[in-house]
């Protein structure tokens, strides 16, 4: 575990040692800031952060693959993977460390949006309803974690980080589009597709409903992606 944390620490630091990390955070905060200023802080409208959460959720679609595209692909391209995997670092620790570094960056990107909650509560005439805000953040984090884990798997498959970005982006889009395939699917496949659908689970969170089933499903999907990435990395030693 300590090696995973060492890798996570280095990874998190590397986002902020290069302009890329700062650019991603700035763009995310700029766009969500616009939405907050012009769609949330509207005089007379109910004090709700729904528009912010919806925008942030959509922004995760390109941002998560951008965060993860270099994770393993770049290590393989530059050869630093060789120095990592010849230290006493298992494939699971490597993938976990990389993922935790990316998750830390996501947290650092989302954390400043707490200011929106403070500003809204200061200017709102009635006290804020904490439920939808908590469920909104929980949904954002769970979706982010799922997207990052898909991105980590994509990054383990190739040395080309642009390709890793595209694979992750289309995989996430595919996951989000599963519900629209349900009506077209044969009867026997519908329950499976329904269970795999992320969309309805997100809608539940948006309504302020925190269902433990949804949390477990999203977390399990993320863990499964990371297990697959670990298997891909381990298989590279035996190729």
């Amino acid at each position: 575990m300590s090696t995973a944390l060492a890798i996570a620490r280095r990874e998190l630091g590397s986002y902020f040692r290069t302009p890329a990390g700062w650019v991603i955070v700035s763009l995310f905060l700029l766009l969500t800031g616009f939405v907050f200023a012009f769609s949330v802080m509207v005089p007379g409208s109910p004090a709700s952060l729904r528009a912010f959460f919806a925008t942030a959720g959509w922004l995760l679609l390109p941002v998560a693959p951008a965060i993860t595209m270099r994770l393993l692909a770049d290590e393989m391209r530059s050869g630093t993977i060789e120095a990592l995997l010849t230290a006493p670092v298992g494939s699971a620790s490597l993938v976990m460390g990389k993922f935790l570094g990316a998750a830390g960056f996501l947290a650092a990107m989302i954390a400043p949006t707490g200011v929106y909650v403070l500003v809204l509560s200061k200017f709102s005439s009635s006290p804020l309803d904490a439920g939808p805000i908590l469920s909104g953040y929980l949904c954002l984090v769970l979706m982010g974690v799922l997207f990052l884990s898909v991105g980590t798997l994509a990054s383990s498959l190739t040395q080309n980080s642009t390709l890793a970005f595209m694979v992750a982006l289309f995989a996430i889009l595919g996951v989000l589009l599963v519900p629209s395939a349900v009506p077209l699917a044969p009867d026997w496949a519908r329950p499976v597709l329904n269970a795999l659908s992320v969309g309805p689970r997100v809608t539940d969170f948006a309504k302020g409903v925190i269902d433990s089933g949804n949390i477990v499903a999203l977390a399990a999907a993320s863990i499964w992606m990371l297990v697959m990435a670990t298997l891909v990395m381990e298989s590279r030693r035996w190729r």
Binding site: S14, R17, S78, G79, T80, E82, T86
Partner: peptide, 15 residues
């Protein structure tokens, strides 16, 4: 028990 310098000496340039 082993110290290893890989071919091409890959390092993290930003560190």
């Amino acid at each position: 028990r082993l110290g290893y310098l890989p071919e091409g000496n890959p390092l993290y340039p930003e560190m």
